[in-house]
Each structure stands twice: as structure tokens, then as C-alpha cells.
Amino acid sequence: SAVVMEEGSPGEVPVLVEPPGLEDVEAALGMDRRTDAYSRSSSVSSQEEKSLHAEELVGRGIPIERVVSSEGGRPSVDLSFQPSQPLSKSSSSPELQTLQDILGDPGDKADVGRLSPEVKARSQSGTLDGESAAWSASGEDSRGQPEGPLPSSSPRSPSGLRPRGYTISDSAPSRRGKRVERDALKSRATASNAEKVPGINPSFVFLQLYHSPFFGDESNKPILLPNESQSFERSVQLLDQIPSYDTHKIAVLYVGEGQSNSELAILSNEHGSYRYTEFLTGLGRLIELKDCQPDKVYLGGLDVCGEDGQFTYCWHDDIMQAVFHIATLMPTKDVDKHRCDKKRHLGNDFVSIVYNDSGEDFKLGTIKGQFNFVHVIVTPLDYECNLVSLQCRKDMEGLVDTSVAKIVSDRNLPFVARQMALHANMASQVHHSRSNPTDIYPSKWIARLRHIKRLRQRICEEAAYSNPSLPLVHPPSHSKAPAQTPAEPTPGYEVGQRKRLISSVEDFTEFV
């Protein structure tokens, strides 16, 4: 048969007729292969192709491409040299491709048809291009793949890379869960390890502090508590009631339409708007009261037996805890006409967050109470924005700035309102402590230090009264110190430094 060459192609190359033996071998191979691939376009007849790359030819070592076609129900084999250009295909004639002069020997084609199974398996396991790669995943090629499931790999992101949580363990979102698992493993320790309690022994800490320079003076030496005195035992138990972190309780009120001037209507609300609910979820963490331990979680007086509701929101960081007394989460009882059960919590909070959804101005004093010092007013606006402002009593104007209003988005509203309420509550605590000038409020841990110092002074006084020969370590507060001759004046800087060093040991009130 003659071949018409394309323009620009090399000279004529004689194409030899395939021997009958080659056709029989390739026909047997075509019957084993699956003929249901995917359909081509209507211009080209339905056909199945599979590209198999052999590394070497037997005796020649030339890479070839073998295409199996099922045109007219008769499979045909096409061998081509890759750099050459194939002729145009037609549905009426068999596929013809040019070969190099080196394939002119018909014996070479017979060798190609009689490829060993080793070469076929190696060509099938190679990388296939384009559409033949999808075909190689079918059941027909499963014989050339190794048996057994593939090893499982770690989760992959859409980009093909490992997620960040699997790369950096410290930033993994499941870090707290692993800590819980470690605690569970520790709890399952053997009885021999049960006595080993991690941490620092208080006796060891005391020993280090006792021999430090801070205890060089007799006034700073630790003293032993009497065991037989019940009054001192009660004082030590009272110390446990003062937490070592700051605590805040903040009221949250929802004002519906037409309720801006009605205290009873505001306290009777059992739910609010959708934006109000989203605002609550951002204030803190939802907790169930019956599962809380009052000595570990500050509840601000809420009952854990269901008297004040089942849930509330709280927030904490390293040095403070805040609980929100939310009116809509507290039960509304029919027998309580004046809502006294709610007001006994909300009316005693220094700061209230008022979500004013009424469309009218909310005035300070609508919720009557002796300790309502500051109101954080949240007014929802259009386009997911809110107006946040402050209202306070006249005696609080020096501590709280009420002249600045803020426009905040719904997303950042819980954070801004919480921070403003916490700052206002700190100012309210300082303002409330002014009624007792001898006990200015600095912080909870300073209050613990003052309680310890008062307890020490009482013990020293009782020891001096029981044994008059012992001198008083600290003179009583009601006694007057003996007159001392004025010492020589020293520079102001040295006096300030000495006073600062003494105050650092005794108390921190002056620095606050």
C-alpha cells in the first residue's frame, strides 16, 4: 500500500504489510482489554486508547508507543517513533504512522508483537499521559499493580500540603484535648505513684524565703500560729474566702420596643432579638451553673441549684474572672410580681450592659438600685453597626469618660462592650471603697496581704499580753509611738528610695 506524505515531511518511507502472525497476537491482546472507555466527539468514531511506554525494544532499544483501536470491530496495532508526526486519522481507513528506516525489517515488528510479559508489566506500571491515566485505574490494570491496600497518609489540604495544625504542634487546635488526655493517663497511674504529687513543697518555699535578706529584721520574721485558738483558725479560714484573682460581676439587660421607661417590662423579658443573642455568645463562655464549683469559678452570688437559672456566661484571663448576670437567662416566676429574684442580683451590680433595642433613649435610673454606678448603652444600628456610649452617676464623672461614643461592628461589639464594662467596674470598686478611707481597694491579692498582716499583728499583741517580758514586734495601731529626735535631713532622693524599699516589703498600697 502507498502512503501520501504530508508537506514538509521527509522522503517516502516504505511501509510494510503486517504479517498475519502479528495480527493474531494483537487480536488476542485486544480481546482481554476493556472496550468501555469514554466516548469521543461525534466527528471521530468511538475508540479506546491506552498509551504504553516501553523502555527498550528487543534487539533495537527504541521507545515506541502502542495504540489499540477497535475500529470496525477489528483491533489494530500502531507502532510509531515518538519524534515523528502521525498522519491524519479517518473512520474509513486504518491508522497509518511513519516509521524510521531502522524499523524497515519486518522481523523487528514480529519481535515487538512478542514482547515478554516482563516488558508489558513494566510498561503498564509506568506513568501514563492524559486520558490513558484514568483508564489505567480500571480493573483491567489491577493485575499489573501490587496486591494489598496502599499505606494511609496524613490529611492533605486542597493545595496538596499538610495542614498547619499537623506541622506545628504548639498551634494545633487540639492541644488542650491532648492535655486532658495526659491528665487522664496520670489519673490511671499505679498505686505506688499515687503518693507522688507534682509541684513545689510549701515548706521548701518557706525555707528559701526565711533565709532571704527580706527577713533580716525582727519585724519581718515569720511567727508560728497558735493551734489552740479558734479565733485565729477562723481568720485563716476567712483568708480562703478572698480569692487571689480579681472578680467582676456585670449585669446584662435587654430593652425591647416600648420598654425604655418600664423597669418591670425590662426585667420580665425572657429572650431578645437575634443580634442580641449573637452578642451574648461573644461576651464569654456559656457555663452550666450546676456543674460549677464556687471555689474555682466566680459566680457573683448565683445559685447553683437552679434558683437563678441553669446557664450563664463568664469570662476570665490570667488575673481576673468576670460573670454576667443576664436577665433573660434568669427564670421569670409568676409568684414574683416585682421580679425581686432578678433584681437582687442586677440591682447590686456596679455596672450594667444595656442592649437598647427600643429605638428610644434609655435613662440612668430606670433600673432603681443603690449600686448602679455605670451603664454601657448598646444601640443597634443599620448595616451591622452599633452605637456604644457610657452613662454614669455624677459622683463617678471624674473616673469615667462619658463624652466619647463609639461606632462598632457586630463582630467586635462583644469585645468592646466587655472591656468598657470591666474598666468601669474597676473604677466603681475604687469609688465605692472611698467610703472607708482606711481600706482603699487596690486588688484582691493586696486584700489578702492586708488580712495576713492584721492576723500577724493580733498574734503579736496576744503574745505580748500573755508574756509581758516579750517586746511587741508591731505596736498596736491605737498606741502612739514614742517621740523621736529629728534626724539629720537627708537628700530627698535617698528618703524616697528608703521609703520605697520599706513599702515594698510591708505593703503595696502607695504604689497603687
Rank of each mutant, 00 (worst) to 15 (best):
E488F: 08
S504A: 14
H248T: 05
K406E: 05
F373A: 12
S479K: 08
H474R: 09
L329E: 06
V378Y: 01
P226T: 13
Q457H: 12
V351F: 01
G300M: 07
H248S: 05
P437S: 07
N261L: 05
T247M: 09
L286V: 10
Q429H: 11
V416F: 07
P471I: 06
N467C: 14
L364W: 15
V376N: 01
P471T: 09
N467A: 13
L283S: 00
T277L: 09
C340D: 15
P226E: 15
K333R: 12
P437W: 05
L280Q: 01
K453R: 10
K394E: 10
R500H: 14
L390T: 07
L264Y: 13
A417W: 01
G309I: 10
P414G: 07
V400E: 04
P442W: 03
R450P: 15
D240N: 07
Q391I: 07
I459S: 06
V297W: 14
T438R: 09
K480Y: 13
Q419F: 05
K296S: 07
N269P: 02
N227M: 12
P491W: 08
Y465C: 15
P491K: 08
E488Y: 08
P380D: 00
E218Q: 08
E488I: 09
D395Y: 05
N356I: 00
L329Y: 04
G306R: 11
I266F: 03
P331V: 05
P476E: 15
E488G: 14
I353N: 00
G300R: 13
K333Q: 09
V297Y: 15
A322W: 09
N386C: 06
H451N: 13
L286Q: 10
V304W: 08
L472F: 12
L238M: 13
T312C: 11
G309D: 08
S435W: 09
H478S: 14
A417T: 11
T490G: 11
F415Q: 04
Y276F: 05
C340Q: 15
A417K: 00
V236M: 14
F415M: 05
S235P: 06
A405L: 14
T485H: 11
S273Q: 01
I326C: 06
S358G: 04
G272T: 03
K337A: 10
V374C: 09
A322M: 10
E461H: 09
R285A: 15
T402N: 08
S435L: 12
E462K: 08
V400N: 03
S409K: 02
Y383P: 03
I459D: 05
P294M: 13
N348K: 15
S268Y: 03
Q310D: 08
F324M: 03
G496W: 06
H432W: 15
E218F: 14
T366A: 06
F371G: 15
H345K: 12
K480T: 15
C305G: 14
L399F: 13
V505K: 14
D410G: 01
D240G: 05
R500P: 14
Q230I: 11
V374R: 00
D303W: 02
G492A: 12
G258K: 05
I502S: 15
L286E: 06
Y465Q: 10
R500K: 14
H248R: 02
C460N: 10
H345N: 08
F279Q: 00
A251V: 02
C314W: 15
G282T: 02
L346W: 04
C305V: 08
L390P: 01
Q457G: 09
R458E: 15
H271D: 09
L253D: 00
D341S: 13
V252I: 05
N348D: 13
H451L: 13
D291L: 08
S435T: 10
R275E: 00
Y245P: 06
S268D: 07
S504D: 14
V473T: 12
I287L: 08
H474F: 12
I353Q: 00
E307G: 14
A322S: 05
F324A: 02
R339T: 14
A463Q: 09
D308Y: 08
V404N: 10
R450G: 10
L267K: 04
S479P: 12
A421K: 00
T509N: 14
Y313Q: 04
R456P: 15
L264V: 13
P437D: 13
T328K: 02
C305M: 11
S358D: 03
S433F: 12
Q429W: 13
N467M: 14
N372G: 07
G282E: 04
E494N: 12
G496D: 13
A251L: 06
D217R: 08
V252R: 00
P294G: 12
G365Q: 10
L289T: 14
D349Y: 08
I319V: 09
R458S: 15
F232Q: 08
C460L: 11
Y465I: 13
C292Y: 14
S479D: 14
D318Y: 05
T509Y: 05
A251E: 03
H338C: 14
T328Q: 02
F415V: 04
A463H: 14
G369W: 10
I459Y: 15
K406S: 15
V351L: 01
T509W: 05
H316W: 13
F373M: 15
I242V: 10
E397T: 14
G300P: 14
K499W: 06
Q484M: 11
G256V: 00
F350D: 02
S273W: 01
D401Y: 04
I367K: 02
H338G: 15
S268P: 03
V416R: 00
Y254V: 00
I377V: 15
